[in-house]
Design a binder for these strands. Sequence first.
DNA 1: ACCTGAACACCGTTCAAGT
DNA 2: ACCTGAACACCGTTCAAGT
Lengths: 210, 210
Amino acid sequence: MGRTTKATGLDAGRDRYHHGNLREALLDAAADLIARDGVTGFSLNAAARAAGVSTAAPYRHFASREALIGAVVERGWIRFSAELDRVVAQHPDPLARLTALGRAYIDFAVSQPAVFRLFFDERGREPTRDAGLATFATLLDCVAQARASGRLPVELSDVDIAHAAWALVHGLAHLCLDGALTVTNPDVGPEETIAAAMAVLGTSLRAAAG
Amino acid sequence: MGRTTKATGLDAGRDRYHHGNLREALLDAAADLIARDGVTGFSLNAAARAAGVSTAAPYRHFASREALIGAVVERGWIRFSAELDRVVAQHPDPLARLTALGRAYIDFAVSQPAVFRLFFDERGREPTRDAGLATFATLLDCVAQARASGRLPVELSDVDIAHAAWALVHGLAHLCLDGALTVTNPDVGPEETIAAAMAVLGTSLRAAAG
DNA sequence: ACCTGAACACCGTTCAAGT
DNA sequence: ACCTGAACACCGTTCAAGT
């Protein structure tokens, strides 16, 4: 008695660990390991070990090490997109929203450096392509609304301004992650350097708008 | 006859390969392999194989795989710095020089993606720190000269403008390498997107200067 | 002084075999 | 259907041994 072929009641969670949610367990383990050690140091064997299964078990759920990493990245995009959506909802004014989006972008990069780096990895994955496009659409929409309120220079197009804003924020995120900003500007914290650099584009754009 | 303990004459190059310039041979092989496959796929064994020595031989010249990669990166910085110096010499006008520096920055990134990515790697290496600082100093000097000619807005500091310009160009370089610009702007080539984004900062800064 | 051979622990991946 | 055990080729690194 006590031994059942199917897990029931209180033990359901524990027993199902080995027949049903290994995929989730591997995803969690991989996310933790990648966050801790970076992608380079990540090993599929270590993820299997953390999930308590054999070294071959992950291949029943993921085609390769790369595929598991891809799944972690996809999950990262979902959370990142949700964060940006929340920022959009909280800021009705397009120019304020633009700044808030930039800060959220950098905040995510700083809080999850390894996943952020994977967002823009050499090998272009499907989810990255689509999610990246959606993110840029959010940005472009924001610029268009600022344009509509007449606060952007007429000689500059929306798409060019959006690319400049994106590149600026993207560059600041990378430079911050790599510690470059604390090297070139050791007197102040990186947050202040970031805010000042973002203000450069903001104030000069507003001034150019007349 | 013909067999000598020391290589002489025409055979000197070939024979010395195995007693003297293995270090150089490994550096060349590593640079080629990293350029071809990226750092992730780079293996010390493959470099040794390419140089025609045993798998243990590299350890007589480099402490680890990381150390060999570091040497490749150091060599990359030297060439990159030389390139930027040439650009500085060719452009006396500070604003024109600023643009040319940005283009040279991105050109290097595109022509040597793997080494460029290593320039700003997680683990802060000595040469990267120093060379990065020197590069930023070149940029800052350029901004200061533009300031002296009264073509920058008084309400923005030199160091903030330099950081904004750096981040913009750095972000464009990364987005271009990752193929993002061709996704968001498929109608035009990435070079045009880059030029337009750089122009956004340039024209709005000039407009703000009055 | 510089390199080889052999060894160690680790890795990604495959596949027959177990339940 | 899902997992294990064992195997393969590869890797980074070490060390005694060769020349």
